[in-house]
Design a binder for these strands. Sequence first.
DNA 1: AATGAATGAGCCTTCATTCAT
DNA 2: AATGAATGAAGGCTCATTCAT
Lengths: 203, 203, 203, 203
Amino acid sequence: MPVISAKRMQDRHDSILGAAREAFAQRGFEGTSIADIARAAGVSDGLVYRYFQNKRDLLNAVLTEFYERTMVDLEAIAAREAPFEVRLHGIIHRHIEAFVLEADACRLFISEVRTAADYQGSAVQQLNRRYTSILVRIIESGIAKGVVRSDIDIRLVRDVIFGAIEHRTWAAVNGRPLDIDATAAGLVQLLRFGLMARPEGEA
Amino acid sequence: MPVISAKRMQDRHDSILGAAREAFAQRGFEGTSIADIARAAGVSDGLVYRYFQNKRDLLNAVLTEFYERTMVDLEAIAAREAPFEVRLHGIIHRHIEAFVLEADACRLFISEVRTAADYQGSAVQQLNRRYTSILVRIIESGIAKGVVRSDIDIRLVRDVIFGAIEHRTWAAVNGRPLDIDATAAGLVQLLRFGLMARPEGEA
Amino acid sequence: MPVISAKRMQDRHDSILGAAREAFAQRGFEGTSIADIARAAGVSDGLVYRYFQNKRDLLNAVLTEFYERTMVDLEAIAAREAPFEVRLHGIIHRHIEAFVLEADACRLFISEVRTAADYQGSAVQQLNRRYTSILVRIIESGIAKGVVRSDIDIRLVRDVIFGAIEHRTWAAVNGRPLDIDATAAGLVQLLRFGLMARPEGEA
Amino acid sequence: MPVISAKRMQDRHDSILGAAREAFAQRGFEGTSIADIARAAGVSDGLVYRYFQNKRDLLNAVLTEFYERTMVDLEAIAAREAPFEVRLHGIIHRHIEAFVLEADACRLFISEVRTAADYQGSAVQQLNRRYTSILVRIIESGIAKGVVRSDIDIRLVRDVIFGAIEHRTWAAVNGRPLDIDATAAGLVQLLRFGLMARPEGEA
DNA sequence: AATGAATGAGCCTTCATTCAT
DNA sequence: AATGAATGAAGGCTCATTCAT
């Protein structure tokens, strides 16, 4: 039987997590100390270790929370009934948005977690897979409907989309804002008909 | 008259640089200590500072050396006389190769340097620009020849290509090998004609 | 509720401060390492930084403590109702005593702090000013009472007294003892009537 | 038989010594590295050790040179035939001048040498004794001539003069200039007749 | 004679983590 | 349950001194 109420525990948990998100975003993982986080959360250093195993665990928790929050939106878009192009555009648009609005979390993931030795097989990797698989399912349904070429390499398309957005957004992270609408539209257009000029000028 | 021969100095320089490349690749920048590098290079801690200003400088040197080495190949490909598709394929192929063969350097760049606060305006950023500009010039020449649609967003294409390869190769970095030829061919194909199925079935 | 008692904290503080005073006195500021001090105080290196901001701060604390302790006596003497000569003698005597009994602190101040670039405007300089101003006020009251020549340069007198004692005591610091009474008496005598032989033989 | 000429050796010696004086003056003893000095002197690090045993020895040499240079003037003043007051004033004036013009050397002596463990019995201490003994001889001759009270403590007078000047000049070292003439005159006046107001108003 | 490459000890400070209170 | 004092290892960097060339 807990000595403090479950709600109080949840509040503590959340404020530590929030403080960590903030701090990691601003100063990076190595640049943030547990004392920083504890102070921002209004608790003692020691208490952090009651809620999280260690600093690394806290980082994972921050990213897990980000993924789960963002994924709700993406899955809603994927579940919607709409033509292939609309759903593709929707998911690309929302993903760019996530990158732009939560650039800090993305940067954390890219520079601190994805490269870590223990990333393979981690919970965060599972989440990342679920995240990207949403896009994969959309493309699969496009193929099923005959809108997308069946000989396409789905995983390659996935990497093209996520990779392009990551690259694209990076500049925006440090400085001038990114035009989300234009970028989403441009990417969809490029994906639909490719680079090549065509006599018939269809695209 | 130098106290040691130029060759000996070059050797020292190279062994420190090599040890640093190895160590950074395996344990990351923060995870590597100067003592680690010195030990691996068979020199004293202090000597590292005779050849490199500080730890950060050593990281820059590792990446500069990688970029310059790889860029020689890329520029040769870009300079070749060949149809657009051939040159595009060539450069994509070589870039994937670089990623696969020197995954360590790429990982370093991505996770330690590109995200650093002082990346903007740094020498490494200059090199990265030169690197990516090779691809940009190929696309421009494709437009000039009328092979590529003139309304294409070149910077978006660049981000698609580099981003896709980065994402794609990531899996290969940790574990199973990547089929370089297939990946290059698939990416070129996707870029040429896009995702969409076509009645004429040209692609 | 504090984790350890206030007394225990005070003890820690004092033992670190004491160890620092001892170590600085024996080996100078640069010659003393934090590890030396921690070992002598029976604590870990890290704990020193919980009680003092850094090494420099520790030095300031040592000197502040010395000044404040000594100043209590000096101010009591200055506040006493007594003829000018008595008060002058009292303060000179006590100042010499401080120099002799706490030669280490004086040496520290003279050789490590007063010459430092950041001395001007520092807290220690404030204390030093308060310290010397006690003497200045006594001389001023001597002038007010008509016992001391009104055309005297008070700051020069101050420098004569403190400078002389500093010089004088220096020998005593390293080796043979100084006769405090004789020195105080001699200095007062010299200050009262100067060097010159006088026909009337008054002095 | 030396492989290089004695003159060349002397030049080397002097340029190293000069570079050291400059560097110590500007950055202090601890703040100056042998490499700094070697660079400024236009020689290699190693060569410094052919001319001086170690860094400490170099500091001693700098101060010895200063003392010897200044002492020539002082001894000339002491040797002059003149009334006591004139000679006393002359030597005080010249000493203040030395302090003001070569504040750096004085600061070095005060903060780096006089406090060192090996000062007692050192060559620099010998020089310091010779330096101060010049003043002592002047006072003795004043006593012999009956101008100075015979019951005066000569060593105390010496400490008063040198101590006062040291204290006085210190402020001048960091900032506003010191009026050498006024200070010398004021000190002589104070020493001659003391602090006390006198009915006859002789002083 | 002269160089300067090489050494390696040393130092201040930070901080994740533990545990007595 | 909560605190925060305490630990102690680790790390980047400097520099006096030596000695092979």
